[in-house]
Design a protein around this nucleic acid. Structure first.
Lengths: 264, 264
DNA sequence: CGTCTCCTTGATGATTCTCAATGCGCGTGG
DNA sequence: CCACGCGCATTGAGAATCATCAAGGAGACG
């Protein structure tokens, strides 16, 4: 299941690409970040990243592939809480002796990097790494924002609306790390996975996806998706790009719906 | 809507009662904590605590009353993310210049205390206040655990199961601060509020509550509830007491269902 | 060529929502 | 004191959403 790989394979840049969105880094911080991708590990799909109720060990960065955090009920029903996308960190927690609140697994073959030094720097000596600390705090807040979005979708939106919102959110997250252009994005999830994330049955999810395709809103083709009408999707799913740090912020207005460009 | 009150009215002890569950405090930390309840403020029901998309200002502690975090869709559908109970903190964020991801309001008349010094101590000088920092980290993790529980309920449980789980969770949280004994707890929520939290319509919530009463699982009487059969409720809702720091932790087993006593 | 995974479809039923109306307690003002 | 309004709980009826069960098809792969 696990293969240690000493040579940095390709993507150390994805960490930079991601985190440099959220703060300015000193040259030392940059060097420190690049080092994080020194030791990487390849995982096949279905590998355990985090096990619920066990102590959290080292924080990691996902360099490529998709993962998710989830929990199951006693009878096997599964709820996926959030997807872990390339450039995301997982396993970082402020609390000492923290135990995991959820499971996490890989959904596709993945490459991960041990980010223990980064985690330690941010938690133990934030004053020495202000840029890194700020960037990690921002990613943590974004994670919370995605979790809240997820709850909003599952709690108060129809299946159709949920999917519109989900695909825009994923497209946006992927575009931040350069894995989605204006319309096309990679979408390696099976319908069962999407269903477990959206709180739907596979059958109903399948039919709702068909509806989206029939309405010419999204296309799917062997592992990738194409957002055909981002504006209509945004209106349907009431999607807005998450805003976590103070800049402008469009206040919520009924049916106003901030227009959304996948390019940004 | 707001009334400034200089004299500490009654409950400074609730902060201690809550936080001392999670860490040992030095005498200085204790004194520091007690000071937090010096300036309190009374709010009526429906008062805004946090406004989405606006910069977060000072962190607070809720001393009495209930609040919630929520967001609404463009057409008015509301999702309540979590309840804020006596002893809970809100408005604390690691990120500088953070903007609020959700709204928060009071659901009943409330008394709040400004916890800015506490927030500053924990965020800026955690090494000087190790106990406080650890306790706040733990409460933050518990908040995340409650949010995940909420998503689990709404995404994968039936209305009946959701309510069983919710009431046990609230009973447990209240018992931590001494506001619930083994079976009886205060329950000042309207059905509309519970419905918005559980992602249900008011009508269906009403009928599901009746079912719980008919099944002799819970009783409701003018603003308070009585848990009649905690074990059966725990089995129905698949409830387990949240475990956030490393001690023993019952691993998830199909239909094993850790038994649950409200007393602890 | 068989097997496996995943997607798709049809049929049926349960869950849940919406609309609309009624009842009940409580405070307020006449 | 009583009528009234208001917020909240409750009920009935009908419809939409969504789940379940079961089966078939398409593609990948050894």
């Amino acid at each position: 299941m696990r293969t240690i790989e000493a040579d940095p394979p390709t993507d150390a840049g994805i960490i930079l690409r991601r985190l440099s969105q959220y703060a300015e880094f000193s040259p030392e911080e940059l060097a420190f970040l690049i080092e994080q991708a020194a030791t990487t590990e390849k995982l096949s799909a279905g590998a355990e990243l985090i096990v619920e109720c066990e102590p959290m060990n080292r924080p990691h960065v996902l360099l490529s592939g998709w993962g998710c955090r989830y929990r199951t009920l006693a009878d096997g029903r599964r709820q996926i809480f959030e997807f872990i996308l390339p450039g995301d960190m997982y396993g970082l927690c402020h609390r000492p002796q923290a135990i995991a609140l959820t499971n996490a697994i890989t959904l596709t073959p993945c490459v991960i990097a041990d980010a223990s030094p980064l985690g330690e720097a941010v938690l133990e000596r934030p004053q020495d790494y202000p840029g890194l600390a700020a960037a990690c705090a921002t990613t943590a807040s974004l994670d919370e924002a995605y979790l809240l979005n997820q709850l909003m979708r599952v709690g108060r939106q129809t299946a159709y609306e949920r999917l519109a919102h989900l695909f825009l959110e994923i497209a946006h997250r992927l575009s931040v790390v350069g894995l989605a252009d204006g319309e096309r994005l990679s979408m390696p999830l099976t319908q069962e996975i999407i269903a477990d994330a959206m709180g739907l049955s596979v059958v109903h999810l399948n039919r709702t996806l068909q509806q989206l395709r029939r309405d010419k809103l999204i296309e799917f083709k062997n592992g990738s998706a194409r957002i055909l009408q981002p504006d209509r999707l945004a209106a349907i799913g009431d999607f807005r790009v998450p805003q976590v740090t103070s800049n402008e912020c469009v206040p919520r207005r009924p049916f106003g719906g901030g227009t959304f460009s996948l390019a940004d």
